[in-house]
């Protein structure tokens, strides 16, 4: 009887949180899946079921599948470049004897802006006529390097990726810094006695000690890269000629430009499944690479 009342009390305490999660996460998720089998223009009260028509459309939509290529590119850039930059910055700030508080703030700063602000800001920087980048190149006598950064397909893809890295490095930086501070000093002292220095210490002490954080940051950055939207929309809107188009932008166009919410929902379901599969793969790889050390650490504690 006492046990039952304790369980009941526990559920009562959990109930508000569960209700909020159900209302704002579970219900929209289920509705999204349901919508992928319906036809809806965004306004009508009539939402007829169309079976698998939306999925058939998506399977034959070459632009959607073509945009996946860019999503993978931005995901890989996020995973490799953004994480590498974040980790280097975190390790540097950790070692810094002076000004670490200043650099902690400065490095984290980009992440506090909204993506729209970032997009507009960089579209000004990269403007071919009056942009800061071209004007600076001109001022230092490097006129020949002036370029139409967002108008040339090659540099547009690189520019969007660079903006993404700049915007996201603060997130990885702060987690890597926390992870680095969590690695016990004793391990460095012991490795020093064994003659380990520089790279060897990073390879055998720092990297394994931060593997847990690296796994989490990698998954989140990979997903952010794959889901990149605001930056692309404001900077290029998928241009020039679709060279920077990503699935999220295509989904947005289907829903909010073409009023094809059913098709957009079907794309979202397929894209979501792809993200889940990739995230699982990434977690599996992370565990394979650093999981054994991490699990030993956990057991040791």
């Amino acid at each position: 009887m006492r046990r039952r009342s304790r369980v009941l009390a526990a559920w009562l305490f959990l109930a508000p949180a569960l209700a909020v999660i159900a209302l704002f996460t579970v219900v929209p998720f289920v509705q999204g899946i349901q919508l992928s089998f319906q036809s809806w223009d965004g306004v009508s009260l009539d939402t007829p079921y169309v079976g698998l028509d939306n999925y058939r459309y998506v399977l034959h939509d070459t632009q959607f599948w073509g945009s996946m290529k860019n999503a993978v590119l931005y995901g890989v850039v996020g995973l490799v470049v953004a994480n590498a930059v974040s980790m280097v910055m975190a390790l540097a700030v950790h070692r810094a004897r002076r000004g670490s508080a200043f650099f902690r703030t400065v490095y984290y700063l980009p992440g506090v802006f909204s993506t729209v602000v970032v997009g507009v800001m960089f579209s000004w920087f990269l403007d071919p006529n009056i942009g800061v980048v071209n004007q600076t190149l001109k001022a230092v006598g490097l006129d020949g390097l002036q370029h139409n950064w967002l108008g040339d397909p090659t540099t547009a893809v690189i520019a969007v990726a660079a903006v993404f890295v700049w915007y996201h490095w603060g997130f990885g930086f702060i987690l890597f810094l926390a992870g680095r501070q969590d690695v016990p000093k004793e391990l460095y002292e012991a490795s020093s006695l064994d003659g380990a220095r520089g790279w060897a210490q990073f390879r055998y002490v720092t990297w394994p000690g931060m593997s847990h954080v690296t796994g989490i940051v990698s998954v989140l950055t990979l997903l952010s890269g794959l889901q990149i939207f605001g930056t692309v929309q404001v900077l290029t809107n998928g241009g020039p000629a679709g060279h920077t188009e990503v699935p999220t932008l295509h989904i947005y166009q289907q829903a909010f430009q073409y009023s094809e919410y059913g098709r957009a929902a079907a794309m979202s379901v397929i894209f979501g499944l792809c993200l889940i599969a990739l995230a699982c793969l990434q977690l599996w790889v992370s565990r394979r690479l650093g999981g054994s050390t991490d699990s030993r650490t956990e057991k040791g504690r």
Partner: peptide, 26 residues
């Protein structure tokens, strides 16, 4: 065609108008 390409992005027309009215670059 100025710059050899057309501006894109959500602010493409404001970019063109800025180049014409404000900076008078085109």
């Amino acid at each position: 065609i100025a710059t050899g390409s057309l501006p894109s992005g959500t602010t493409d027309n404001p970019t063109v108008e800025k180049a014409f009215f404000n900076t008078q670059g085109v």
